[in-house]
Design a protein around this nucleic acid. Structure first.
Lengths: 166, 166
DNA sequence: GTCTATACCCGGATAGAC
DNA sequence: GTCTATCCGGGTATAGAC
């Protein structure tokens, strides 16, 4: 990938972080770079290609955050939640809706999932349940679905405790 | 609400069920009813009002399905998942993204949540964790996020088992 | 309550000159 | 590699006649 392409992806990340998925349009992206929208198509075939690069970048960041955490459920859950709250729009783009697997680097998805599998002693089925819990907590929190004033820390603790006994 | 308004909401539900959230447009809705889009504004002030009625209807259906299930976590989880898989687009519209609470009937959200709270012996914090698990499982399944061939029944069992020991 | 006509916004993407 | 000009499609919503 050329240097210019990297700059484009970087700008795209900023747009998503600041304004959510919908803020990433070819026009807005071009404007941020000081060029015109059609010029982007000299670097990427279409918008989906740009989006895929943003997703890949976010997944790498999340994977790094999880790998840096201690190999216990509680620490992993904390790191997961922290990433999602720090980058809510990136988390959404990366984790909600269909994933363009063909456009992503091989093994990246697996890499992001690995820390949880290890924390669950290699039990992939249980790891999936834990992942679903964490994803559900994050999405409900980001979407403002819990009642105002709900004890979310408590809910996280309850979930982590439940799965720790597994 | 007039009879005509009810017909409009019913048509809107069909559009969502068949084509997802994006398929619900004022033009498509009008066409399905054999009228022109501007005529809809004689019955509803804007699109959000129609959408809110669809959401309310879906929440009532889900609440009924949960109330009909046995008062145990396993049965509730089964009913929850069954509803979501039977009406994936309605589930999404109702459960993902911000909720227009001002436009919904009082107490409806609470009603839908109650069965889980009861199954958890009144522990609202634990009930929220269970809800997050179920929501996460459903969304990851609907979004095709699990690896192909993953044992989802097993993941559901693992989650239900973990929270049952609470 | 329905229509036609229309305003207004937005999006992705292409052709062809430079 | 950037530009201008443009196409094409889509959306919500309003005005005013009937």
């Amino acid at each position: 990938m050329s240097e210019r392409s990297r700059q484009i992806v970087e700008a795209a990340v900023c747009l998503v972080e600041e304004g959510g998925t919908e803020a990433l349009t070819m026009r807005a992206l071009a404007e941020r770079l000081g060029i015109r929208a059609p010029s982007l198509y000299k670097h990427f075939p279409d918008k989906a290609a740009v989006e895929a690069e943003v997703i890949a970048l976010a997944m790498r960041d999340l994977a790094r955050a999880l790998e840096a955490a201690k190999d216990e459920l509680e620490a992993l859950a904390g790191a997961y939640r922290a990433y999602a709250l720090a980058h809510p729009h990136l988390y959404r783009l990366m984790s909600a809706g269909p994933l363009p697997r063909e456009r992503l680097p091989d093994g990246l998805e697996e890499r992001a999932a690995l820390p949880v599998v290890r924390a669950m002693g290699g039990e992939r089925v249980a790891a999936r349940a834990v992942w679903a819990f964490a994803h559900g907590m994050v999405m409900l929190e980001l979407d403002g679905r819990f009642p105002p004033g709900a004890d979310l820390d408590g809910a996280w603790r309850a979930g982590v405790a439940a799965f720790s006994r597994t």
